[in-house]
């Protein structure tokens, strides 16, 4: 298969997934609404004291993004699995790992990216200093694709199961922890006026590692789920 054919095939998948996402506005909005909802539960839980909220703000943004991302993952392969499109994709000459990574990219564009863009609003509501805002956007920009990649492995493993939802969270949340630690670490450092480029570089390193190896694991997990 030529490189041009490969790019065209993957472009088709990307366009199709994006079009499907935009036709179903509910699926597009729900993760964002969920993200806001979870974040606004924290002040109700711990009280409206500005000092406390400023301390926990970075963590709240990240934990909410984590949960929103994870809940959205369940739908990543499900409809394609149920209507047989996934099997067709596996029969195509395109390498399955690249197909999987394209689908993850489409999924990230409609969930991870919007969350990244609205996260500063929540940060301002929690009273985080202005210096922390670039750190929030930058860490989410590097971190949420990693979450989608790792989570897609779990989504691929559980797509054939009827009650995959809670199992998916059990499998993927422990693997999210390094991303969470690096993200909140950078936000904390930025809020306190320290340099945070080291955190960002580590996140970049993790993402590079994830882009290299996760597609293989996603492809293998899809093969297990589809061929049984």
């Amino acid at each position: 298969m030529t490189l041009r054919g490969l790019v065209r095939g993957l472009g088709c998948i990307l366009r199709r997934d994006l079009r499907l996402a935009f036709r179903n506005r509910g699926d597009l909005m729900n993760p964002l609404v969920f993200f806001f909802l979870v974040a606004s539960l924290f002040p109700l839980g711990v009280g409206p004291s500005p000092d406390v909220l400023r301390i926990i703000g970075g963590g709240v943004v990240w934990v909410s993004a984590l949960l929103a991302n994870m809940l959205a993952l369940d739908s990543l392969f499900r409809s394609d699995y149920e209507d047989g499109a996934l099997e067709q994709l596996m029969l195509s000459p395109l390498p399955l790992s690249l197909v999987a990574v394209t689908k993850v990219l489409a999924h990230w564009l409609v969930t991870g990216l919007p969350i990244t863009l609205v996260a500063p609003v929540i940060a301002i509501m929690f009273g985080l200093p202005a210096e922390a805002l670039p750190a929030i956007v930058a860490t989410l920009l590097l971190g949420t694709p990693m979450l989608s990649l790792v989570g897609a492995i779990g989504a691929g493993l559980t797509v054939g199961l009827r009650k995959g939802g809670i199992l998916l969270s059990l499998l993927t949340l422990p693997l999210y922890i390094p991303v969470l630690i690096l993200g909140t670490g950078a936000i904390d450092a930025a809020a306190n006026g320290f340099p945070w480029s080291a955190h960002l570089m580590w996140q970049g390193a993790l993402l590079a590692l994830g882009i290299t190896f996760a597609p293989l694991a996603i492809g293998a997990s899809l093969r297990v789920s589809v061929s049984g």
Binding site: V150, I153, G154, L157, L171, P174, L175, I177, P178, I181, L182, G185, L206, F213, A217, A220, S221, V224, S225
Partner: peptide, 23 residues
Amino acid sequence: ACAILAMVGLVNLPIIKFSVEWW
């Protein structure tokens, strides 16, 4: 399925360990 999850977990184990120590 369990084999894939175990292998992914093994790759993540040192990353988790280092990040937790750093945290």
